[in-house]
């Protein structure tokens, strides 16, 4: 194995806590097998650091199969490291060359404060969902599954949007730190289905309002989010969000008038 092993130099962001100041620290990663995943390479680096009495690099990760959305950091300026349609846990060392120098940074976005080293706080995403990213249906009150017919194409488009893993790469890569792609994915998923119709416009309004409450920037159509999204979620969904948001302004106002008039 050592015949093919590669040697890398890592510049890793180290920050002991949310309020501490951080800095880059350089580590040598020797004898790295090309068959390892990127996170396994970091495991090896951490085992060696621990043996030397140095605290390991903290990074978020869980399923290591690209679906939980826990992992993610920036490698040489690209969220998840630049392999198309992939999270960093699915990136393998065979894509790197001997002698490569890599800079590892946490997601850089005001809305995602650093927790430690490469870990950030993405709880703003949960709050966007809390604002309206659901269908209000209590357990037990559902009709038969086939009582509601959904055209196959609508179900497919809904699924294209619904597969967002909430990793935050879109925000990290966006020069403005905007959360439009994440928010649009949920809004479009539900707007595409009959189940999502009753609350459709309220939802768009409430979720967009929540983005503005958080420290996200505005969307100016750079499109970098789509380029790094591990699930390839299309920015067409942002157009869909904008349409629903505009319609919402008109509708919600009218609904308020109607409700006020009858009351």
């Amino acid at each position: 194995m050592s015949d093919h092993a590669i040697h890398l130099q890592l510049h890793v962001w180290r920050q002991s806590g949310p309020r501490a100041s951080g800095r880059f620290v350089t580590y040598e990663a020797r004898d790295i097998s090309p068959e390892m995943s990127f996170l396994e390479m970091l495991d090896v680096v951490n085992e060696r650091l621990t043996a030397k009495g140095e605290e390991p690099i903290a990074f978020d990760h869980d399923c290591r199969e690209g679906i939980c959305g826990t992992c993610g950091f920036v490698i040489n300026g690209v969220a998840h490291g630049g392999q198309k349609g992939s999270t960093v846990c699915q990136l393998h060392m065979r894509h790197f060359r001997d002698g490569d120098e890599l800079t590892l940074e946490p997601w850089r976005a005001r809305a995602f404060p650093v927790v430690r080293d490469l870990m950030v706080d993405r709880s703003a995403f949960d709050r966007i969902i809390q604002a309206g990213g659901f269908v209000s249906v209590n357990t037990g009150s559902a009709p038969d599954g086939n009582a509601l017919l959904v055209p196959k194409v609508d179900a497919d488009v809904a699924m294209d949007a619904a597969q967002c893993i909430g990793c935050g790469a879109c925000v990290a890569q966006c020069p403005n730190g905007a959360a439009q792609l994440f928010t649009a994915a949920k809004i479009s998923h539900l707007a595409q289905l009959p189940q999502g119709q009753p609350e459709r416009y309220q939802r768009a309004q409430a979720m967009v309002a929540q983005i503005e409450t958080e420290a996200f920037g505005s969307c100016t159509n750079y499109g970098e989010c789509e380029a790094v999204c591990p699930k390839g979620i299309s920015i067409d969904f942002i157009a869909m969000l904008n349409r629903d948001f505009l319609k919402a302004a008109v509708r919600v106002e009218r609904e308020a008038r109607v409700a006020g008039g009858s009351g």
């Binding site: 509601l148 809904a158 998923h189």
Partner: peptide, 15 residues
């Protein structure tokens, strides 16, 4: 009942 509940929530099952 699980399927009914999940459909009502908007789970995009294959159709």
């Amino acid at each position: 009942a699980i399927i009914d509940q999940c459909v009502a929530q908007g789970v995009p099952f294959a159709r």
